[in-house]
Amino acid sequence: MQIFVKTATGKTITLEVEPSDTIENVKAKIQDKEGIPPDQQRLAFAGKQLEDGRTLSDYNIQKESTLHLALR
């Protein structure tokens, strides 16, 4: 499925993911596309910060959802 990640600079990244993917996997995909190390990424959805060990389906993130990326 496709999801979107909006960066602090307003850029939107499109990612191909599975509901079973962990947040860690998603951060690795962002690193592949943007070169941002996962340990510098903070992802949020619906106002909640997402934890590495959880999956997209844990957070009820569905196709075409938009996550927000902040850098630490």
Rank of each mutant, 00 (worst) to 15 (best):
M1V: 06
M1E: 02
M1W: 08
M1S: 03
M1G: 03
Q2E: 13
Q2W: 15
Q2D: 12
Q2G: 11
Q2R: 13
I3W: 00
I3K: 00
I3H: 00
I3V: 07
I3R: 00
F4G: 03
F4Q: 05
F4E: 04
F4C: 03
F4L: 06
V5Q: 00
V5N: 00
V5H: 00
V5I: 13
V5L: 05
K6C: 06
K6R: 15
K6T: 12
T7P: 06
T7K: 08
T7R: 10
T7I: 09
T7L: 14
T7S: 09
T7W: 09
A8F: 13
A8V: 10
A8D: 10
T9M: 09
T9Y: 12
T9R: 10
G10R: 05
G10D: 07
G10A: 08
G10N: 14
G10E: 09
G10Q: 06
K11C: 05
K11W: 09
K11A: 08
K11E: 08
K11L: 13
T12L: 13
T12C: 04
T12F: 14
T12M: 14
T12A: 05
I13D: 01
I13K: 02
I13T: 04
I13L: 11
I13Y: 06
T14C: 04
T14R: 11
T14H: 08
T14W: 06
T14K: 07
T14V: 15
T14N: 08
T14A: 08
L15A: 02
L15H: 00
L15P: 00
L15D: 00
L15F: 05
E16P: 05
E16S: 11
E16V: 10
E16A: 09
E16K: 07
E16T: 12
V17L: 06
V17P: 01
V17S: 03
E18R: 12
E18T: 14
E18Y: 11
E18M: 15
E18P: 04
P19H: 06
S20H: 14
S20L: 07
S20W: 11
S20G: 10
S20P: 06
S20T: 11
D21S: 14
D21F: 09
D21C: 04
D21E: 13
D21V: 05
D21R: 02
T22A: 06
T22W: 07
T22M: 08
I23C: 03
I23Q: 02
I23W: 02
I23R: 01
I23N: 01
I23V: 08
I23P: 03
I23M: 04
I23S: 02
E24A: 15
E24S: 09
E24Y: 13
E24R: 15
E24L: 15
N25S: 15
N25K: 11
N25F: 10
V26P: 00
V26L: 10
V26R: 00
V26H: 00
V26C: 03
K27H: 02
K27R: 05
K27M: 04
K27A: 02
K27Q: 02
A28T: 10
A28L: 13
A28G: 14
A28H: 11
K29E: 04
I30D: 00
I30T: 02
I30C: 02
I30S: 01
I30N: 01
I30Q: 00
Q31M: 10
D32F: 12
D32V: 08
D32I: 10
D32N: 08
D32Y: 08
K33W: 07
K33G: 06
K33C: 04
K33Q: 12
K33H: 10
K33T: 07
E34P: 01
E34A: 08
E34G: 04
G35L: 05
G35F: 06
G35W: 04
G35Q: 06
I36K: 02
I36P: 04
I36C: 04
I36R: 03
I36A: 04
I36M: 06
I36V: 07
I36D: 03
P37C: 05
P37Q: 08
P38Q: 15
P38R: 12
P38T: 15
P38A: 15
P38Y: 09
P38S: 12
P38G: 09
P38C: 04
P38K: 15
D39Q: 11
D39G: 09
D39F: 15
Q40L: 14
Q40S: 12
Q40E: 10
Q40R: 12
Q40I: 14
Q41E: 01
Q41R: 02
Q41Y: 09
Q41W: 03
R42H: 08
R42C: 06
R42W: 07
R42Q: 13
L43F: 03
L43T: 01
L43D: 00
L43N: 00
A44N: 13
A44Q: 14
A44H: 15
F45P: 00
F45R: 03
F45D: 02
F45E: 02
A46L: 09
A46N: 15
A46Q: 11
A46F: 08
G47P: 01
G47F: 04
G47M: 04
G47D: 12
G47E: 07
K48D: 08
K48V: 14
K48F: 11
K48Y: 11
Q49V: 08
Q49C: 06
Q49W: 15
Q49I: 09
Q49L: 10
L50K: 00
L50V: 03
L50I: 04
L50F: 02
L50C: 03
L50A: 02
L50W: 01
E51W: 05
E51V: 13
E51I: 09
E51C: 05
D52H: 07
D52Q: 05
D52G: 07
D52Y: 05
D52E: 11
D52V: 06
D52L: 05
G53E: 14
G53V: 10
G53P: 09
G53T: 09
G53R: 12
G53N: 13
R54Y: 14
R54N: 11
R54V: 12
R54I: 07
T55L: 08
T55M: 11
T55A: 06
T55R: 07
T55E: 04
L56P: 01
L56H: 00
L56K: 00
L56V: 07
L56F: 03
S57A: 11
S57K: 12
S57Q: 13
S57V: 09
S57F: 13
S57T: 13
S57Y: 09
D58K: 03
D58C: 03
D58F: 12
D58Q: 09
Y59F: 04
Y59R: 01
Y59D: 02
Y59S: 03
Y59T: 02
Y59W: 03
Y59K: 01
Y59C: 03
Y59P: 00
N60T: 05
N60M: 09
N60K: 08
N60Q: 10
N60L: 06
N60E: 02
N60G: 15
N60R: 07
I61T: 02
I61W: 01
I61E: 00
I61N: 00
I61R: 00
I61S: 01
I61L: 03
Q62S: 13
K63L: 07
E64D: 13
S65M: 07
S65Y: 08
S65D: 14
S65H: 08
S65E: 09
S65Q: 08
S65C: 04
S65R: 03
S65F: 08
T66Q: 05
T66A: 04
T66I: 07
T66G: 02
T66M: 08
T66N: 05
L67G: 01
L67F: 03
L67E: 01
L67N: 01
H68Q: 09
H68T: 08
H68W: 09
H68D: 10
H68V: 07
H68I: 10
L69W: 02
L69P: 01
L69V: 05
L69A: 03
L69Q: 03
L69E: 01
L69R: 01
L69N: 01
A70K: 12
A70G: 10
L71R: 11
L71W: 06
R72P: 15
R72D: 11
